[in-house]
Amino acid sequence: MPESSTALSTPYAEFDFTPGDLARLRFAFSPVSEAVGSLRTLQDPGRHALHLPWIRGVRPRLRAMDLRLLFALAPLGAYIPDFLTPPPTGPLPDIAAELDLVASADPDEAAREVARVPAADTRPVQEFLADPAAGTARAADQLRQYWDTALAPYWPQIQGLFESEVLRRSRQLTREGAAVMFNDLHENVRWDDGVLRVRTMAWRRDGPLCGDGMILVPSVFQWPDTLVMAEPYQPMLIYPAPGVATVWQQGTVPTPDALDALIGRTRARILVALTEPGTTVILARRLSMTPGAVSQHLKVLHAGGLLTRNRSGREVFYGCSPLGHALCGRSCY
C-alpha cells in the first residue's frame, strides 16, 4: 500500500468515478490497518509526537515480544504489503475476521508484495519469501498478539472517534455532495469533475473504478499522511481522522468560567467535549466519567436544547445544537 506525502506534487493515483461507483462509496474502519499503522508509529516516534502518550504506555509491555517480522513487513517509507491491510468487509469491524483474511491471503500475491518492501533483504523477509503460506499465518499470529497487547486496551476510544467521523462524513456526503466531502478529507486528496486524485510517493494509477466503488477509512495512526489501495483489491483510501489528539486526552477538558456558572462544570465539560458527535461511552472515556453519570447529564442538556440526538444502528450519537455551539463560543460545523 503506497503512502502519500504532501512533499511531492506527483505522482498521483487517479480514479474515474461513474454514478455506480458513487453509489457504492462507503465508509468503514479497520482494526488490523490501525495495528499495522501503529507499528510504523513505534519505529519513528519523533514524526508521530501526537501519539507519545500511547507510545510511552505500550513500549514497556512490548519488550518481551518479537516484532522483527512485523517491523520488516511494515517499514518506514512508501510501501506496505497490501495483504496486511485487507479492505474492511462490513460496517462493524472484527479484528478476528480481519486477521483470518491476513492469514489466508494468496501466498503468491503476498510474496510479490513482500518482495517490494525496502527490507526485502533482511532475514525475517527472506524467511517469509521462502514459505509465503507459512509467512502469512505467522504474520497474522504476531499481529494478533500485538493487537492484544498494544491496541485492544485503547480500541474503545479509537472506535468512538471513528464512529463520530463516519457519521459526520456520511452526513456531509449526503448534504453537500462528493466534491465537498472529498476535498475536505485531506490536502493530498482532490476531486475534480468525477475524478479523484490522491497524491502518492511510489506509484501511479489512472482509469475507471469499473463500478467497484471505494472504501473510505478514517485512521488514527496514519496521521498525518494518507494511504491508497487499488487493484487487485477493493480500492480503499485511508486518511487521518480529525480529532486524533483527543484519543489520548482523557479527563481534562477546559471550560469557560461563565459556562460553568450557567450550566455547571460537569455539563459544561460535556458540552465543550462535543466538538464532534459522540456516544455516551465515547464521552465517558473522554472525560473519565461513568457512562451512567454522562447519560444523566446528556438528558438534561438535550432537554434544554443544547444537544441533538441521532441514531446510527444501535448507537445514539449526541452533538451540539447551534445553541450549544454558541454557548461554547464556536461556530457550527
Rank of each mutant, 00 (worst) to 15 (best):
Q296D: 13
D106M: 03
A7F: 10
T85P: 07
P218E: 02
G304N: 15
S30W: 06
P19S: 01
L129E: 06
S219T: 12
L101F: 00
L39A: 11
T290H: 11
L209A: 04
P81Y: 05
I158R: 13
R269W: 06
A258V: 14
G264L: 13
L8R: 14
V189Y: 04
R311G: 01
N310P: 10
P235W: 01
V125K: 02
D206E: 14
Y233G: 00
L323I: 14
V253D: 01
G37I: 08
L306Q: 10
N183C: 04
T308Q: 10
A258H: 12
Q234W: 02
L274F: 01
E276R: 14
T41Y: 06
P291D: 04
L306W: 09
T89G: 11
I263A: 00
G37W: 10
T6S: 06
P19Y: 07
L262E: 15
P132N: 07
L73I: 08
P153D: 05
E98G: 00
G243W: 14
R311A: 09
L301A: 03
F182R: 05
S4Q: 13
Q126E: 13
R309Y: 07
L301K: 12
A130L: 04
A133L: 12
R197N: 04
E98F: 01
V217H: 03
L143I: 01
S164A: 10
G264D: 11
G177P: 14
C328G: 05
T290F: 01
L84C: 02
T290Y: 07
V281E: 15
M201L: 09
H51M: 08
R63S: 04
I158A: 03
T266V: 11
D121E: 14
Y333G: 12
L129Y: 01
V247K: 01
F221I: 00
P235G: 02
D21W: 03
P19K: 11
S288T: 15
F15S: 03
Q249Y: 04
P277K: 09
R199N: 02
G194A: 02
L283Y: 07
Q142A: 05
N188Q: 05
L143F: 04
V189F: 02
V125C: 02
F83Y: 11
H302L: 06
G292N: 14
I263K: 13
D121S: 15
L237F: 01
Q142R: 15
V189T: 02
E113V: 00
R26F: 03
G264K: 14
M201F: 00
D212N: 14
P242G: 08
L262Y: 10
Q234Y: 01
R47M: 03
R330F: 00
T136S: 05
V217R: 08
A49N: 13
S104A: 12
A303S: 11
V294R: 07
P31I: 03
S312I: 15
L69D: 04
R197T: 03
A179V: 07
L301P: 13
A130Q: 12
G160R: 10
L67C: 06
R269K: 14
F221D: 00
G319T: 13
A49F: 11
F128G: 04
V281Q: 15
V281Y: 07
A72L: 10
A150I: 08
I95L: 02
G46R: 15
W191M: 06
P118S: 05
V102P: 13
L298H: 05
Y146L: 08
R68Q: 09
L92D: 09
G304M: 09
G324N: 07
G37P: 12
T174G: 11
T10H: 13
N183M: 07
A268Y: 03
G278S: 11
D44M: 13
A97V: 10
T18P: 10
